[in-house]
Write a protein that binds this DNA or RNA. Structure first.
Lengths: 347, 347
DNA sequence: CGACCTTATCTCAGCGCTAACATCTCTTTC
DNA sequence: GAAAGAGATGTTAGCGCTGAGATAAGGTCG
């Protein structure tokens, strides 16, 4: 331990508790820096005894690798870029939870960005995330600006496009068919004997998946020979408040409706609240169906009939597949996490 | 443009579309790398003409700085480490939204970690985030393991401890006094003439702030000469489902209660659902008060009486203050974002 | 027993930036 | 008009790690 080298000297000088580097660990363990690096990353053959000494040295010094240096040297980082359209809708935090769960126990960390459903904003985020040379970028849907698409395709980074599977992904898509989900909603209502079916929705311009479900709904009704008798949409983002008001508006403007399909559970829960306040019996006077299967819907006095989208699984599965292989495979892959009708008491 | 240097040569070889570096930009703009770096970071005096040339070159090449290299060279990164206890409770995504809003327009990006209310887990996250030499670490509350506290204090990184202000922060605390919020809840109920007040709560072991509110509630009642007539807690994390069940249990085990203070809005909304299902008139038979001021509470047929915590502002304010100065100031600062009673119709 | 693996380690040259300092104009000031 | 300063840029030496190749020591085999 009487190593008179500069490093050791500096380290031992109490005045400057320098943060330990690979070099310190290597010196203490009596091996080369590269060997330490290989022990840490578990690469190549290491003698058991060497591994022990290195690990001891790491523990003794409390060494923590400098990720910036590692990223620079390997030109790839342990970052997973995550781009979400929103955080106000609980759905995306749940996807993020899944991503986080998939990342647990790995050295990868999510770096996040929120687009507010804006493609330009997504493009900027992609560019700024690529500056970190992440291992992967996880984003939402298939709609990107041309530039964004070029950046994603051009990078060697793995790409996951979440939530939707109704188009061709760049690398990996994990989600469900919103069109099919919409059709399933229609079939459910039809099977339950409803025939005067209306739609209450939110902003399509930003939420393309909501629009896909709407299309599916119409298709499903069409197949049963039924029309969509009425529809009402808010230009706002979905929320319980908007759901409540949108249903109120729908019912004020139309009569004879026996069921309403909502663009999602937030809207549907809001609708349910309107029914409570307006003394409308659900489902006797009016049936309601939502989409997502949020907890709040299942705690209503009558559990909401809805479609379970597996948000957590979408995030987790995506990460698991992305981490399987750091290299982008020759052809894109699509994972259908499916959906299922939750038979509540509202439709 | 007949530059025969290696860099230009490589770049022009169509076979290998190398990603541009500072060197490429410098060459194209006819200045030194350092000048480009200074233009990008807006450091030191730059001639207008030089700036123009550099920016043109950047645009032409589509140059994006390599953050890893920058971090390594400056031994500090444009990362803000964000450690949240949970993502299932909408409260924390809202804080994250605030953080994100505060970061908008800056080159900083949040890197997140979720502790599940576990301090060991927080410690690991702190260590793994510090490996990125972030500009700041944002975490929750004042409870940390000794090791975690030492790591935070020892780093030169700025630290924000969010949500609570009832203790001494390491560097910056942004939040509200949960004890005072609890007392305010008590005062509100007392002022409205309720005297048989009970408590329905969730897991304290993990959620210390819920416990602080409980203590405040008891203090507040004590000051009015009133007891807490009953209480019931679930060992689970808060949720609408647990709220519903916990209130059911509380009422099954006790009679004569005229008001219930809940540990938060999730629980309170669940409680409201129980009342709806069990035909209990709110607030005539039973008054309810929550905490947080979530949207869902305000969409109930009767808007929930609750305490507004300014989650978004907490996140945003914290970021703004942290970015004001990259160096930790000599003494810690506490920002009270306050709270306010939302006078709903349930208490 | 020399050729040839296999295993375990080391050497060394960067990765793409930034900090610190050096340099070279011009002004300004007395 | 020499000294001093301000403005604008260049030069140089790393930051702490990893990748590729070199090296060395032992085992296998015809």
């Amino acid at each position: 331990m009487t190593d008179s080298s500069l490093l050791a000297e500096e380290r031992s000088s109490l005045s400057m508790p320098e943060t330990p580097t690979l070099a310190h660990v290597a010196r203490l363990a009596g091996v080369s820096e590269n060997t330490v690096s290989r022990v840490i990353r578990d690469k190549g053959p290491i003698a058991t005894e060497t591994r022990r000494r290195v690990n001891d040295a790491i523990a003794q010094l409390g060494y923590v690798p400098n990720r910036a240096a590692g990223s620079l040297a390997s030109s790839s980082s342990l970052i997973i870029g995550v781009i979400l359209p929103s955080l106000s809708n609980i759905v995306f935090p749940e996807v993020l939870q899944g991503i986080n769960a998939g990342l647990a126990g790995t050295p990868y960390r999510p770096m996040i960005g929120v687009t507010d459903y804006d493609l330009e904003s997504e493009q900027h985020l992609i560019s700024s995330l690529l500056a970190w040379q992440p291992a992967a970028i996880i984003t939402t849907g298939f709609a990107h600006t041309d530039t964004a698409r070029r950046m994603l395709e051009g990078s060697r980074v793995r790409i996951a496009e979440l939530m939707d599977i109704d188009d061709r992904p760049i690398d990996l898509a994990v989600g469900l068919s919103h069109r099919q989900a919409g059709r399933a909603m229609a079939r459910h209502l039809v099977n339950r004997g409803y025939s005067k079916i209306a739609y209450a929705g939110h902003d399509w311009a930003s939420d393309r998946r909501a629009y896909a479900r709407y299309q599916g709904l119409r298709e499903g009704l069409g197949e049963a020979g039924l029309p969509l008798v009425a529809e009402c949409r808010t230009e706002q983002a979905s929320s319980t408040l908007e759901g409540r008001e949108t249903l109120a508006r729908l019912l004020a403007e139309n009569t004879g409706i026996d069921a309403v399909a909502f663009s999602n559970d937030d809207m549907a829960v809001g609708g349910f609240m309107h029914c409570l306040a307006a003394n409308i019996s659900v489902p006797e006077d009016l049936a309601l169906i939502g989409f997502n299967g949020l907890e709040i819907g299942q705690v209503l006095p009558k559990p909401l009939t809805t479609v379970l989208s597996n948000r957590f699984a979408i995030g987790k599965t995506a990460v698991e597949i992305l981490l399987e292989d750091t290299k982008r495979p020759p052809d894109a892959r699509i994972i259908d996490t499916g959906f299922s009708i939750i038979e509540g008491a509202t439709a």
